[in-house]
């Protein structure tokens, strides 16, 4: 069986779902962050796959590069915020950081 677009899309879908599960089920903020990275990678796989099977369109690659750039920036800022949260709460559990609710 020739490896086609659909194969990559299925891989991407599964990776995306794993990332989503990670985000939703874990308390630890860094785990959530890792889930997020998985989702971004899933999206990137989609971009590149469509780029290839769309006639080697380079625009898909560019989009993927910008996603990576954003991921890097996001990881830096998110970790900085986590450090602050940790200094304040002495933990980084998502479900306990809900002071705004009161």
């Amino acid at each position: 069986m020739e490896i086609g677009l659909t194969h990559y899309l299925v891989i991407s879908a599964l990776l995306f779902t794993l990332g989503l599960f990670g985000i939703v089920s874990r308390k630890h903020s860094i785990m959530v962050l890792m889930g997020l990275e998985l989702i971004l990678n899933a999206a990137n796989i989609n971009f590149i796959a469509f780029a290839k099977f769309g006639g080697m369109n380079i625009d898909g690659h560019i989009a993927a590069i910008f996603v990576i750039i954003l991921a890097a920036a996001e990881a830096a800022v998110a970790l900085a915020i986590l450090l602050n949260i940790y200094q304040h709460f002495r933990h980084v559990n998502m479900d306990e950081v809900d002071s705004l609710k009161e």
Binding site: I23, V24, S25, V32, M94, D95, D98, L100, K101
Partner: peptide, 8 residues
């Protein structure tokens, strides 16, 4: 709830 995960 204030929990981002439930929002997601």
């Amino acid at each position: 709830t204030g929990r981002i995960q439930s929002y997601v």
